[in-house]
Design a protein around this nucleic acid. Structure first.
Lengths: 169, 169
DNA sequence: TTGTATATGTTATAACATAACATTATACCA
DNA sequence: TGGTATAATGTTATGTTATAACATATACAA
C-alpha cells in the first residue's frame, strides 16, 4: 500500500475570505525569484511589479487593469509592456491565463510542474482557484487517447459557486 | 447487464479529412430547424446564414470571418448582426463558442442536451471536435464536488494533434 | 570595453465585442 | 382586419483585448 503523508488537507482548499493574503503574495514572490534564478531568467522590475499586481488577490485580473494600476501614479507604461511581462510570467509558469475571462492569475503551485491549468471560478466572489485533480487528469488523458488524439495543452475552467458563496436562491 | 446497441462507433469520431461534409451541414440545418420549431424560436434568414457559414467546415470560425463572408457579395451587414445571430444560436444550443480561440463551431449533437462543451482542437488542421466523455464528466463532477464547489458551466478545450495529423518530428 | 543578446520604449493598428437607440417585421388578439 | 405588443434587425459609435514593427536602452560575457 502506498504511503499517504500529507501535512494538511488544505493544499487545494479554495481561498478563504479572511485569509492572510500577504503570505500568499510573499510566498509567490519568493518562489518566483527562486524559479527565475534557477532558470537563469530575469525577474526585472516591471515583471515583478506585474506579478505583484496579479497577486493582489485571488481574483483574475485583466491586462488593462494591471496597466491602469501601474499608471495610477502618473506613469506612462504602454500595453505592450504589460503583455510582454505577462508573456514572460506565463512562460516561466508564474501566472496562468484564464481564457474564459481574458484575465490572469498567479500560479499557486510554482515549481511543481503541474501545468494542468484546471480552474474553479466563483461567479459570486470571482475568486479563481486551481483544481489540479489527478483523477480528472487521468480521465481526461484516457478519454482523449481513446479518440486517437495527442494532447499538447489543456484548458479546464469551471464556473460556479465556491464553498464560501451560496448560489442565488 | 446493460444493453449496448450502437448503430456505429462513429458517433464521436474525429471528422475525417475527406468525409462528405455536405451531409454534416444538411443534417445540422435540418435539426436546427426542428429545434427552433419545437422551441418556438425563429430561425430567421441571417441566423440561418450564419449557421450555414459556421458549418462550412469543422474549423472554428471567428465572428469577423463570418461577417466578411456575409459581406463578400457587397453586403453591408454590421458586426452586431453577426454577434446577435451567434447569441441566438448559442442560446438554442446550435453552436458552441471556443474560448481559447474566440471562435465558433456548429454543435454536432443538437437536441441531445449534452451541454458538456468539451472539445478537442487539432493544432495542425485546426479541426475541432466535441469530446463529450461521460467518464471525464464524472471525474470532473466528483473532483469539483470534493472541493465544495457547485458547477454552473464548464469549459474543456484540449489542444493537440488529431488522429489524422502527426505531431511535428 | 565592446559586441551581442535581452529587455524595454513607442506608435500604430488589429481583432474581438457590446452599448444605445432607431426602424422594421411578425405575431396575436380584439 | 387593424392595432398593438413583441421580437428582430439596422445603424452608429465605442469599448476591450491583443499584437506588429521598429527604435532605444540595458545587462552580461568575452
Amino acid at each position: 500500500m502506498a504511503t499517504r503523508t500529507h501535512k494538511h488537507t488544505d493544499t487545494h482548499a479554495f481561498p478563504k475570505p479572511g485569509h492572510n493574503h500577504d503570505r500568499c503574495t510573499a510566498d509567490a514572490l519568493k518562489k518566483a525569484a527562486a524559479v527565475c534564478a534557477q532558470r537563469k531568467t530575469r525577474l526585472t522590475d516591471i515583471r515583478r511589479e506585474v506579478l505583484e499586481l496579479v497577486w493582489k488577490s485571488h481574483v483574475p485580473v485583466g491586462a488593462y487593469d494591471i496597466l491602469s494600476q501601474l499608471n495610477s501614479g502618473g506613469g506612462r507604461t504602454a500595453p505592450m509592456a504589460v503583455y510582454r511581462a505577462l508573456e514572460f510570467l506565463l512562460e516561466n509558469g508564474l501566472v496562468h491565463r484564464l481564457a474564459s475571462l481574458n484575465a490572469f492569475i498567479g500560479c499557486a503551485h510554482i515549481g511543481k510542474d503541474h501545468h494542468a491549468a484546471q480552474f474553479l471560478i466563483c461567479r459570486v466572489c470571482e475568486t479563481a482557484a486551481e483544481l489540479d485533480s489527478a483523477p480528472l487528469t487521468r480521465a481526461l488523458t484516457q478519454a482523449v487517447a481513446e479518440r486517437g488524439f495527442t494532447i499538447d495543452s489543456q484548458i479546464v475552467e469551471i464556473s460556479g459557486f465556491c464553498p464560501h458563496c451560496s448560489p442565488p436562491t
